[in-house]
Amino acid sequence: MSDRRSEESSGDEPSSSSISDEVWEQFLQDTERDIRKSAPKEPSARAREVSERLKGQQGQPEGWRTGPAWQEMNGRAARRRRTWAVIGVPLAIAVAVVAMRPSLIPGDPFGSSAGTDTAATQLPAETTTPTAPPSAVAPDTPTLAHPFAGSPALRWADGAAGIVLPKATALGAIPKGRVELALQQTRKLLVDANLNPDVMAGGTPSAALSVLDPKQPGVLDNLKTSLRSPSKTHDPLFLFSRFDPKDVKPAGKIVKVRGRITFAKGKYQGVAVHADYTFVYPVVRAAATDGSTEVTRTIVRRVIDTELSDPTRYRVTPGRLTLLRYDEDAGNTACGIDDGYLHPRFPSQAPTGSAAPTGPSVDPYDRSRDIGKEEACGTVSRT
């Protein structure tokens, strides 16, 4: 990794000699106070491990006009991932329900119209933080014809149509055009990372990587390492939704999406964008030997903070995003597998993974709760 301080100031950067000692000292004190306030008081063992490794990689502390560094992201509880597996109890409940309602058998062999997706009215776009989880829906079993049956996501938007950008406006001296660019670049990141079929099948998220600033220390290198050689500390699932095509394949072409995106003036004199979205992926086994068409769903929620920083004040690439935070919360994926793929569990399938769920049961559709506070392997109340 190159030494950021060895780079010579470009002609559009103000000379550091124009900053008085008093202003410099105040900047350092304010920055240190902000980082202390935002850092978790008791980081997890995994966060401490990553922090120590990254400290070893960074030869010098964050400098003036260099923009946010990777270790600051780690201190702000970035790159947190919580997985929520499915336990065997829902299977017993499903068997009892099917006994009373045969139409819920996958494939609907009796010709019933139960669980018809087209009957649902789409919800209006989310504009504020929800105050409660979605209401319970009829426990219909998903099928290839109706992969979102029995899910609150049935009424959510389809794919990229669910990522609705707010109307861009100027932020003081920051023109409307820069705000629009920050929003569009963040949307491009979200769409490619979570909705591109090639990326979902394990391909390279080229469009998502292309909007990130190569001058942000360590970010692109770490992401590319995670894609090339996934591991516990270099996990592409932190930012990208990926399934092993030898394991599962999409149950149809639709991924349901719900969330919101906002903007404000950023810490680095640019446009800060906050995105909070949940993606629902219906899948089937890639090669079921028994001819089964059983459908299950994995639910992934992502909270991402980006900033289009001011290139006249910071050593950044114009038009590229600085990635400040990314948290992930995955529901219905095996625990303890670090191969860079989500591993959905089917109701009729035995548990997989090396780590048994020990955390609490949560509703993966509940967008009113915070994520990224701690790491855990728990269970989901519904899929």
Rank of each mutant, 00 (worst) to 15 (best):
L165N: 01
F110I: 15
A145N: 00
P68A: 11
P90T: 01
M100P: 08
T66L: 10
P142E: 02
Q60E: 15
I163S: 00
V97M: 14
A119I: 08
A138Y: 12
V89G: 08
P142R: 02
P152E: 00
P142I: 03
N74L: 13
Q122D: 13
G115Q: 05
V86N: 00
A125N: 08
W64L: 15
S113C: 11
T131M: 10
P102A: 09
W70P: 01
V86W: 01
P134C: 05
L123W: 07
V86P: 00
G75M: 06
A157Y: 01
T66D: 12
D140T: 14
R79C: 07
A136L: 09
E126G: 08
Q58D: 14
E126D: 12
A138W: 13
W156Y: 08
N74A: 14
Q60V: 11
L91F: 05
R101T: 11
G150F: 02
T141D: 10
P90A: 03
G111W: 04
L154I: 11
D108M: 10
I87T: 13
S112G: 15
H146L: 05
P102F: 09
G162V: 05
M100L: 14
R155V: 13
P152Q: 03
A99L: 15
I93D: 12
P147F: 07
V89S: 14
V137T: 15
T129D: 11
D117C: 09
A99H: 14
G115N: 08
L104T: 10
V97K: 09
E126K: 09
A77W: 00
T83I: 14
A160C: 06
S135D: 12
L165M: 03
V95P: 05
A78C: 08
H146G: 04
M73R: 08
L154G: 10
E62N: 07
P109G: 00
L144R: 06
Q71A: 10
G150R: 01
R81G: 04
G159D: 00
A94L: 09
L104W: 09
L104Q: 03
I87M: 15
M73C: 11
Q58C: 12
P90E: 03
